[in-house]
Write a protein that binds this DNA or RNA. Structure first.
Lengths: 243, 243
DNA sequence: CGCCAGCTTGAATCTACTCAAATCTTGTGG
DNA sequence: CCACAAGATTTGAGTAGATTCAAGCTGGCG
């Protein structure tokens, strides 16, 4: 896995992604700049948020992949949601975190600016929250009503759609910096079966992957085939107008 | 199914439930009283919220069961979450609803007072939102990592824990006003298999049910056996102090 | 009484899991 | 540069769990 350098590459991508959700005003840009200056790396397996513990400091993810996870007593693990660059963690400071979040790969994070810093920032946060909710819903449908093959395709399409606006995916191509075991924990499957489904998709010509580089040969067509409603709407809040 | 009479029985239960989440102040009680006066019935299968359509009016559920649902193209259906008395729907007026919500049984709803009506009401809404998120997480873990038997038990325990503070469950006993097919749609199983799992639980002495009346013989013990972390914390927000 | 929806049960099938082993990768040290 | 170790991916065979299809049963209601 490529080590994360806090060199600002993630930062500029993340700002661009946030700006796409809602146009940023000067206050927002300033607050973000100040926060970005305090970026720091996070080691894999380190906890970003601990379920039940008060949130010390809300975080903005700049680089790397994390996951919100929950464990059962016997060791089974379920990933509720991947945490990707541009995502927010622990939106309510002081409140108890509703879930544990860990770094899966090396990550880079910074403190999330207060949502009160600017009206635009508040709108961005609302949009991020709405998207997060939508992804939780999508995860439920995947786990509840899709076959293993459909789950794999659907998750990869979702990851593509989430990474693309952050500048981390293009032309159906992106890096999946996690093991098939991690994907399995998100998909409610075993790693062995995830592997078989990936082989199947590869043989069907739907995708190719070598190492950690994945390519969806035709995301739009795949999405239609998988019965995916068009990519999530980018704008959530009403009355935006611009753009 | 018992027809819903808009007689205020649901209303008082719901106010009590909300008050348990956060003490109500006078402003909140007044706003609620005004809203409750505008209670109205909703027929089964009627949509309370339509995915993608703007929310006309945020709703407070007073009686009956609903569900947030999503459909796949081929007719498969997944219930994301049950909507029970005391729940809120369409928290963001004007915004697009992120999901479709339907009445499963006859319901009674009223407009949800503006969250700006009082600080206490705002806190209550935040607590309700936090609980909702927690239930989404629980649903994901059920669908992703639990066996059919565990899923059934876990969902019934969750329903008990949600209905109890609303005064709709006592001593492990409550009414499940939906068919096994509806439970199956929430559990990611077939109705046939849900039935088998219920039979098994009944034979194991964990519960009894006849018609729509369900009794969990020992919810606490069942929860422990099912590896359920203690019932969800009631208070979410920090710095509450009172009570 | 008969109908209909929902519940119950059985048998066959299929999906995904388990267990096990082989292969491939990547990083490390000689 | 090669050998090796550790982790990850790949493949196979057998099994368990959930589905499908089908039929019988039950209870409420016209």
């Amino acid at each position: 896995v490529t080590p994360i350098r806090c060199d600002g590459a993630g930062a500029s991508r993340v700002v661009a992604r946030l700006a796409r959700l809602h146009p940023l005003d000067d206050g927002a840009r300033e607050a973000l700049a100040a926060a970005l200056a305090r970026a720091r790396p996070v080691q894999p397996r380190r906890e970003l948020l601990q379920e039940g513990a008060p949130v010390r400091e809300p975080l903005l993810v700049l680089d790397g992949w994390g996951a919100k996870v929950r464990h059962l007593l016997d060791g089974r693990r379920q990933i509720l949601q991947f945490v990707l660059p541009g995502d927010l963690l622990g939106r309510e400071p002081k409140a108890q975190a509703p879930v544990t979040a860990i770094a899966v790969t090396p990550m880079e994070v910074c403190p999330a600016p207060e949502r009160t810093a600017s009206p635009a920032l508040d709108a961005v946060y609302a949009a991020v929250a709405a998207l997060e909710e939508a992804y939780l819903h999508a995860q439920i449908v995947r786990l509840g009503r899709m076959s293993a093959h459909e789950r794999v395709i659907d998750l990869l399409l979702e990851l593509y759609e989430r990474l693309e606006p952050a500048g981390l995916a293009q032309d159906g191509r992106f890096t999946v910096p996690v093991t098939q075991e991690v994907l399995a924990d998100a998909l409610g499957l075993t790693a062995v079966h995830v592997n078989r489904m990936l082989q199947r998709a590869r043989r069907a010509g739907d995708l190719s992957f070598s190492g950690r580089e994945l390519m969806l040969h035709d995301p739009a067509a795949l999405g239609r085939k998988a019965g995916r409603p068009r990519p999530w709407p980018r704008r959530i809040a009403a009355g935006d107008g611009s753009g």
